[in-house]
Design a protein around this nucleic acid. Sequence first.
DNA 1: GATAGGTTGTCGCA
DNA 2: TGCGACAACCTATC
Length: 558
Amino acid sequence: MPVSLCLTSPNCFRTFSLVPNPAMAPGPNSLMWFRKGLRIHDNPALEHAAKGCGCLYPVFVIDPHYMKPDPVTFSPGSTRAGLNRIRFLLESLVDLDANLKKLGSRLLVLKGEPSEWDIKRLCFEYETEPYYQALDCKVKNYASLAGIEVFSPVSHTLFNPADIIQKNGGRPPLSYQSFLKLAGKPSWASFPLVTKLNPLSAIGHVGNCEISEVPTVQELGYEDTREDELTVFRGGESEALRRLRDSIKGKEWVANFEKPKGDPSAFLKPATTVLSPYLKFGCLSSRYFYQCIQDVQKNVERHTSPPVSLLGQLLWRDFFYTVGFGTPNFEQMRGNRICKQVPWNDDDDELLAAWRDARTGFPWIDAIMVQLRKWGWTHHLARHSVACFLTRGDLFVHWEKGRDVFERLLIDHDWAINNGNWLWLSCSSFFYQYNRIYSPISFGKKYDPDGEYIRHFLPVLKDMPKEYIYEPWTAPLSIQTKAKCIVGKDYPKPVVSHDSASKECKRKLAEAYELNKKLNGVVSNEDLQGLRRKLEEKESQEPRPKRLKQKLISWRPK
DNA sequence: GATAGGTTGTCGCA
DNA sequence: TGCGACAACCTATC
């Protein structure tokens, strides 16, 4: 009996069939299913698949939902991913294919046509995201029905999130420090990882299955993509290892790395490693990265420590993976045990769109949103700035809305880390000091007083004198004219007054916190509606210029 | 129940 | 460049 196995989405079971054949010799045929973990080095699933096998099928399945152009979204891309990330993924696949070819194999890219293959061993990297949990559960069930051995090792993260949760009595730790204590040193920290593989077995019979080369973005149906809309970072394991070598070359830089001291406005040479997209797709093994940093630290007198050190950054990643894995409804406010229930604006699409489309009228915020859209990447602190601005700092828009925008645009988008950071920045979980608000004016200014970052990503402001570049609406008209940028015409007026909007946000959060405390975190929809009404009443009693009156202009960053 | 500590706020001052 | 005031949150731990 052939057993159908779908390797694309949890709700479909028709990609191809596996036909176990006990008579096959010499070893069992193996299927290595690549999802993330797009690498040769430190890839236990691939290693196991290759060990003593007959034929080896290295497979990547194109999921149409992830790849196919969706014409109705706000930025080029598919239903689930922006074009930048799709391109990054394709580049990573091309590189993986090339690296497999060096080992005498190749990548088999499949697109949905059923076929029968003779497989006895199925190997894929373990995943903690709900999407893969649901999919893998079904795949494992079907494989076991068919008598196929499944090997699914934890190798995407430093630790197994389930172990940490178990050590903590069944609940994930909610602070970084307690996470560190529970985690300790990873078991493999001082063992050499397998970074090189022997030549791989041949590909087996593929039947009538449609095998293709890695498609280009054009072949996927993306036509009019302007080059300047595309990211400056190239995907793939080779590029990841090159970047890694470059980053750790400067031993002092590694040893003295302090995340909060990095400059978010540095764009010619980013202040961080920009290894996050490679970690996201597993082009770079986080464990290999860990060992490389460890080696550098051994050879210097003193070095920084978590949370600010470079190693600390990798541990943050594991922290969010752990909490995300152990928290039901982690990606939403409702039904999320660790999330404060707050009456965010969730129907003001105008404010959301202004933020998303880089027309809030705050150049620092808008420049970051342009960089995000073009590069699919911005510095961590720049992400903080815009996330705070959208939610608890100024616009009071629901963090889930901002999360969705990041999810689409970031090339390093990672389910656990993105949701975790939005919970953090909106003061919904992990972090609660809602009085600490990033100023959309002074925060950028302290790193980049001349506004070079703004001039680069918002060329409309390139001739604005530095005295006004963070607040162009305060520039006298003569200056605006001279700079060829009239605020309200060439560049928008600010959508809110930061002073009054941030005060209002603090007041609302104080009320929301009080309600959560009173109800012991069990806040119903009605409770939230009640608070929303109460806050609105207060607003109408004390009318204040919540939003500066302005004619909406159809301004687009160029 | 009290206390310590928390990845990275802002402002004014020395 | 570094400090305290600002106003005061929460979680972890005892």
